[in-house]
Every structure is written in structure tokens, then in C-alpha cells.
Nucleic acid binder design. Structure first.
Lengths: 223, 223
DNA sequence: TTGACATTATAAACACTGTTTACTATTCTG
DNA sequence: CAGAATAGTAAACAGTGTTTATAATGTCAA
């Protein structure tokens, strides 16, 4: 009875066909461009059909983002094995910076939009799966740094350290996404700022902190 | 000919009456609850009437936020006169933290939502007015710190420093607003994290940096 | 093979948005 | 007092996400 398997496979194919259509709209034109009617048009189906595969629009776009981000994490993970804990920490931060700058729409939806349903069953299982639980992975890297004596003696709370590092990078990226085109601010290069703050935080929390030099910026902006 | 003055006054009264109605909805239920029809209902007018006083919904809510934030800044400014530059810098950061935690909806709209019209005429005049140009004011405080020899010798770029400090605090607040209710993260107290990161950044950029101790957290969260 | 069941896709409607248009009073002005 | 300007409105427009009833299709046991 391979019929149920085929059914499941066809269902999955249809889901990815929907997500592929949505990705084109989302990655290029942002969340507001992702309209159920537009997506339905792209795949030449009726809007109501999408509800057979996703409970609502929000679940559809979140599934899209989570999948893409998990894929990015997957390409990043293998290179972490042969690094020291501190190098892993740095590498993780760099990867997060790159992700935010290369996929601002994904970043915006995943980290800058309040959750509609905090008590979701999908979130719990995502939390349990180490492949998709980015925060849990990051937390373990921080813990390894603590165990390796990277941080000051009074910094023993991995959650506190992880949340602080996360928030710092998040601030540079999200502010850039939200107000990066504001002509009233003479913005300095965002990547340099992100890396600088990242190093600043690590140095400030490190046992043997070394001063973090000001980066050399491209001569694009003027006074 | 006091008639045109009275006309202008009545117009202004109507504007504030609209904004007061919108504020109730916005501050308590967020942006999505601010519906033109709901606002019109509150003041017992027709929805189309609002368009006689605001060009569109976005301008209305932004006028609301800018007014409220300017008012908060006004209450904060007088106490800055008799402080040292470094104290002013700290005080500014604390005020920003308080604002974000007490008015999350305002914060969300002003700093976490991409500008719809970057080339707006209202933005330019806001930039010119020191009462409403918060970033310009902050920039001048940073410059005073540079002149007073607070920062390391290589940190001479006031914009870079200001944007870094801003982004750090912004990250803690905005991440808290967006994902603060995510049950998968064992969040540490947000105010302590904001202040800690603030001090961490200041110390890391200071000429005579002193280690920033881990704050003592309330015993609310558990492992 | 046939009848019953489950599934898929759809057309149409529903309940909302923000916004515009045509129109009616009211008020001010020359 | 005639005419222009303004305030306010009812109704419609063009969208949105979502639900419902219905027709078509495929599956499977009697």
C-alpha cells in the first residue's frame, strides 16, 4: 500500500511548490508583497487551496523562513568542528551577521516581528530539534567558552551572556534594516559596525580582554 | 481678522482629538488595533473626515509617536545641564532604555518599522529642529565625550560611536519587544541586560576602561 | 463493478482593511 | 446677499485574509 506514501509525497511537493512561489515574492519584495492571491496566481491555483496545506498565511511564511534559515545554518555547521570554543563563538556571530545582511526579509520576519502565537506546538518541537534550534546551539557554544575559561570569573550565566551577545548583533542588523535608509543619519558601514560591536562585547566579557581597535572604514561617507 | 486664527486653532483641536482617540487604541493594543474606522467611531465622526486632517493613516500614527517621544525627551533634557559629558551619555542611554520599556508600541513603530517614505519633507525639518532631533542631540553628547577625552585615542568618529551605542541598546529593547514572550528562551531580566550592555560598550570604548561586573539578577528564572 | 467514503480544488461570499469620490450642508468673504 | 471655500458624510472602490458550500476526483471495501 504505497498509496499513502505517494499521497504524503504529493502533499509535500505541493507545499514546496507553494513555498517556492512565495519565496520569490518574499525575498525580492518583502512580506507585504506576499499575498495569498498572488501566490495562488503564481502556481495557477485558487487562493483557498493554500489553506489545505497551511493553516494560515503566517504559518506559510514562517515555514518558509525557518526552512531557509535552517538551510543556512546547515551549511555553516560542518566548519565548526575543528575550531576552539572562542573561534566557534566568533564564527557563529559572523554567520548571524551575514545572514541578517543577506536575507533582511527573513531576518525581519523571524526576529523583528512579535510572535502571534507564542504557545505554538511547532515551536516546542523546533526547540527540541538541535538542527533547527539555533539559540540552543549558540547557548551550548557559550557554555563551552565558559568551561574553557574564556570569560571573566563572575560571568557564569550562559543565558545572560548569550542573550547579551545576541542582542548586540541583533541591534546593529535590525536598526540597519529598519532605519538604514534614513537620510538624517550619516550611517557608517553596517558590517564594520556589527563586527566591531561583536568584538567589543567579547573583549569586555573576556578574562584577558584586549582593547578593540577602531576599524578602518571605507571613505564613502562625508561630514 | 481673528477668524483664520480661530480656524487654525479649531483644526489643531480636531487633530489632537483624533490623536487622543488613536493613542488610547495604540498604546494599549498596538498598531494593528488602530483602525481608521475605530478611531472615527471613538470621536463620533466619519472615517473619511480623518483624511481632512491627515494625509493617510501612517502620517497620523507617526505624528502621534513623534509627539509623544518629543514630550518624553523634553522632560528629560533639563536634568542634563549640570552633568559631566560621560554622565550625560549614561543618562541619555538610560532614558532611551526607559522609553523603550515603557512605550514599546511607540518604540516599535518608530524604530522597528522600515520607513515608508525616506524622502519626506517632514523628516528634514525634524532633523533641523534640535528639540525633535534626538539623534543629533545624542551625537553632540558623544562629541562632548570625545572632546573631554572619555574615549580611546583611535575613537574619533562621533557618528561611529553614537551608532554603535544606539544599536546596542536598540538590540536589547527591540529583541525583547519582538521575542520577549518566546517560551523557548530563558530570558534574563531585560533592564539588567540593557544596562549591562550599555556599560560594557562604554567601558570597552573608554580610555580608562574598568571591568564591568556581572549584575546581580532577581531569582525569578530557573535552569 | 459498484456504492460509499475521503480528498482536492474551486467559486463565491464574508468581514475586514485604507482610501477616494460625489455630494450636502455650513461658514466665511467680497 | 451671491459666491466661494470649507467641514463632514454616505457610498463606493480596490484590496486583504479567511470561510463555506459545492462539484470533481480518486480510493477502497462489499
Amino acid at each position: 500500500m504505497g498509496v499513502t506514501e505517494r499521497r504524503a509525497r504529493e502533499r509535500e511537493e505541493m507545499r514546496t511548490r507553494i513555498l517556492d512561489a512565495a519565496r520569490n515574492l518574499f525575498a525580492t519584495e518583502g512580506y507585504d508583497a506576499v499575498t495569498l492571491r498572488k501566490v495562488a496566481d503564481c502556481i495557477e491555483y485558487c487562493p483557498a487551496t493554500i489553506y489545505k496545506y497551511f493553516s494560515d498565511k503566517d504559518e506559510m511564511v514562517r515555514a518558509l523562513c525557518e526552512g531557509d534559515i535552517a538551510a543556512m545554518m546547515a551549511t555553516f555547521r560542518p566548519s565548526m568542528a575543528e575550531l576552539t570554543p572562542l573561534e566557534r563563538l566568533r564564527s557563529f556571530g559572523r554567520a548571524f551577521i551575514n545572514m541578517g545582511l543577506e536575507q533582511p526579509n527573513h531576518f525581519r520576519l523571524m526576529f523583528m516581528t512579535p510572535l502571534l502565537s507564542p504557545d505554538d506546538s511547532l515551536l516546542a518541537e523546533k526547540h527540541a530539534n538541535p538542527d533547527t534550534d539555533s539559540y540552543g546551539l549558540f547557548l551550548s557554544v557559550v557554555q563551552e567558552c565558559i568551561d574553557a575559561g574564556v570569560f571573566r570569573e563572575d560571568l557564569t550565566d550562559a543565558e545572560f551572556i548569550a542573550q547579551t551577545l545576541w542582542a548586540g548583533i541583533h541591534g546593529v542588523i535590525s536598526l540597519h534594516i529598519a532605519l538604514g535608509t534614513d537620510p538624517n543619519v550619516n550611517w557608517r558601514p553596517v558590517r564594520e559596525r556589527a563586527i566591531y560591536l561583536h568584538e567589543l562585547m567579547i573583549a569586555g566579557m573576556s578574562r584577558n580582554s584586549v582593547p578593540v581597535p577602531m576599524p578602518r572604514l571605507e571613505q564613502t561617507a562625508l561630514a
